[in-house]
């Protein structure tokens, strides 16, 4: 492996991204809907943070804001990273490009030279264990394999331009929720392995408590309408029993948050 896949060396910056008092409203006047209200959140370099919440809590809105697909209505987002890469629930691969050309695409758009592009693409495909199917097109791959190609593409985009004080940041919007249980399980393990190899910071959105606890170092629970940070849990290096206990605890809190909406 070459430099681009090595863990980030010690850096002086203490966070990869910091949201302070972020507010997002859609529409104007009396009919406006407040999706996020006063969200404070920081992700350290190389940290794996899971954002958890029921539907309508503005998880996706938050990712869109960090990704720069949408503008905040208030507050501030401070990015110490290169352009954050995004992985969606669908693989969103270009159907006319082969797997390796798909991974190459962000590098092509960034104007990286061909030989360099090819080399990095091959490395990334190997990293997600798809070195052999680089010539296949998306429709020839299974859902899980497509999502791994999407992961490699996101890494190509995240790691390019990282370094020199710039961190890599990967934003993931329920990337495994459309997959079957076994594939999801395998891909979660795969993601952890890739994350440890690359040392990218990850902001992972999910509505699955078990997934959040298994993957994340920290789990952040958002309330719904408007989304606010309700509580945080440190879930790094838990024992199996500790993990089960935390899952129960978070589930209970999540239920509380959801049932509070029935009264309103």
């Amino acid at each position: 492996m070459t430099a681009i896949l090595e863990p980030e060396t010690q850096s002086t910056v203490e966070h990869a991204v910091r949201l302070s008092g972020v507010r997002k409203a859609f529409g104007t006047g009396a009919r406006s809907v407040v999706a996020l209200d006063g969200v404070d959140l920081a992700v350290e370099p190389g940290e794996f943070v899971c954002l958890l919440g029921a539907s309508g809590c503005g998880k996706t809105t938050l990712l869109n804001l960090v990704a720069g697909l949408d503008a905040v209505s208030g507050g501030e987002i401070e990015l110490n990273t290169a352009r954050p890469a995004v992985m969606f629930q669908e693989a969103a691969l270009m159907p006319w490009l082969t797997a390796s050309r798909n991974v190459e695409l962000p590098l092509r758009i960034a104007g990286v030279k061909r030989a360099d592009r090819r080399r990095r693409t091959a490395e990334l495909l190997d990293l997600v264990r798809l070195g052999e199917v680089g010539d296949k097109r998306p429709h020839e791959l299974s859902g899980g394999m497509r999502q791994r190609v999407a992961l490699a593409r996101a890494l190509a985009s995240a790691v390019h331009g990282a370094g020199g004080g710039k961190q890599a940041l990967l934003l993931m919007d329920e990337p495994f929720s459309a997959l079957d249980a076994i594939t999801r399980d395998v891909l979660q393990a795969e993601l952890l392995r890739v994350w440890r190899t690359t040392g990218t910071a990850v902001l992972f959105v999910t509505h699955d408590v078990r997934e959040a606890v298994r993957l994340g170092q920290r789990v952040v629970l958002l309330s719904s309408r408007p989304g606010r940070v309700v509580q945080e849990w440190q879930v790094d290096r838990l024992s199996a029993a500790g993990e089960a206990k935390t899952v129960d605890e978070i589930n209970g809190r999540l239920r509380e948050v959801i049932s509070s909406h029935a009264a309103a």
């Binding site: 440890r196 994340g216 879930v235 290096r237």
Partner: peptide, 29 residues
Amino acid sequence: MPPPDAGVDTVEPDAVAAGLDALDTPDPG
């Protein structure tokens, strides 16, 4: 998150992943 060397991944995840890939790849015509 479990520590890297323990936890849920006891069933040879690599073998499972390889098996899934073999099963999932659509038949190339």
